[in-house]
Amino acid sequence: MSVYLGEFIGTMLLITLGGGVVAGVVLKGTISEGAGWLVIVVGWGLAVSFAIYAVGNISAAHINPAVTVGLAFIGEFPWNKVPGYVLSQILGAFVGGTIVWLHYLPHWGKTEDVGAKLGVFCTAPAIRSYAANFVSEMIATMVLVIGVLFVGANKLTEGLNPLVIGGLVMVIGLGLGGTTGFAINPARDFGPRLAHFLLPISGKGKSDWTYSWVPIIAPLLGGALGAALYRILFDQQMDLIYFAVVVLAVLSAVFAIVKDQQNKIKTQK
């Protein structure tokens, strides 16, 4: 099996199981309806673990463009394979979203909430503030990528790495996911969002493309940031490009703070 097919299958499994958990919780008439955020977070974490076990020995199971780009940024993955990996991940996520739609076919028509339907496929912020949402996704993905590098360097967890990384995703969801739904993966958000846009889902509403850039660009920057911080802090590599990414991330955070203060002033007037 090629590495690209491995990434396709791994990401497809991730979305089929992770998106399937969301569908079971938010769609009307399911047995698991209303099970809550904890079930969703645990489901996504276990979906990540299973996807890594499935294709880890084939493609290293990046299943996430932010991981692929982050590793390439620090020289741990060849740049010439990045486009193929990213395309495979997006296509796998699209097919995974399609499988979820098909599996829950009778429940779409019974669900009136268009936001809940969209939430099966992609993320949306709890409070829409693009700058703050961007920083939230950037921070969460930074934690993911630097955590993956920690796990890879720690022989203590060898053999259990997929479960440990699944646990990492769970704690990111619990600790950092309440703001934006923790996409932390451009393919996980874009592929199923595209499926939502194209599929004949009953009463589906709009696909919210105005927000879609946030869970694409922010995780890519967060992935590069996490990888750069790992190199700077733990490998003592002081390359200028690593510091440039850190500066860009800091500027993003400052911009978000300024926008938040401006919004507070507008609200008070």
Rank of each mutant, 00 (worst) to 15 (best):
M1L: 07
M1W: 04
S2P: 13
V3G: 01
L5S: 11
G6F: 01
L13R: 01
L17W: 07
G19Y: 04
V21L: 09
V25P: 00
T30Q: 07
A35T: 14
I40E: 08
I40H: 03
V41I: 14
W44Q: 07
L46F: 15
A47Q: 02
S49A: 15
A51W: 00
V55G: 05
I58D: 00
S59C: 07
S59Q: 10
I63N: 01
N64H: 00
N64L: 02
P65W: 05
A66Q: 11
T68K: 08
V69K: 02
V69L: 15
A72I: 05
A72Y: 11
F73H: 03
I74N: 10
I74Q: 08
G75F: 08
E76G: 12
F77C: 04
F77V: 06
W79T: 08
N80Y: 15
N80Q: 13
K81H: 14
K81L: 14
G84Y: 01
G84F: 12
L87P: 00
Q89S: 09
L91Y: 11
L91F: 14
V95I: 15
G96P: 06
G96N: 06
G96K: 07
G96S: 09
T98R: 05
I99M: 14
W101L: 08
W101A: 14
W101V: 10
L102C: 13
L105M: 13
L105R: 13
P106N: 11
W108K: 04
G109Y: 09
K110D: 15
T111C: 09
D113W: 08
V114N: 04
G115A: 12
A116T: 02
G119F: 09
A126V: 15
S129F: 09
S129K: 05
A131Q: 00
N133Q: 00
N133R: 01
N133M: 01
N133I: 03
V135I: 07
V135T: 08
S136H: 11
I139T: 10
I139S: 03
V143S: 06
I146K: 01
N154W: 12
L156D: 13
N161D: 14
N161T: 13
N161F: 00
P162C: 12
G166Y: 08
L168E: 03
V169K: 01
V171M: 14
V171K: 09
I172C: 07
I172H: 08
G175S: 14
G181F: 02
G181P: 12
N185T: 07
F190G: 01
F190K: 04
L194N: 02
H196F: 12
F197K: 13
L198K: 02
P200D: 11
P200V: 09
P200T: 05
I201Q: 03
G203D: 03
K204S: 11
K206R: 12
S207F: 05
D208W: 09
W209T: 02
Y211K: 05
P219Q: 06
G222K: 00
G223K: 03
G223Q: 03
L225W: 14
L225C: 12
A227T: 07
L233Q: 13
Q236F: 13
Q237V: 15
D239W: 14
I241Y: 15
Y242T: 04
A244K: 10
V246E: 13
V246N: 10
V247A: 15
V247Y: 02
S252F: 00
A253G: 12
A256W: 01
I257K: 10
V258C: 03
D260W: 12
Q261T: 08
Q262D: 11
K264C: 02
K266S: 08
T267E: 14
K269G: 14
K269S: 13
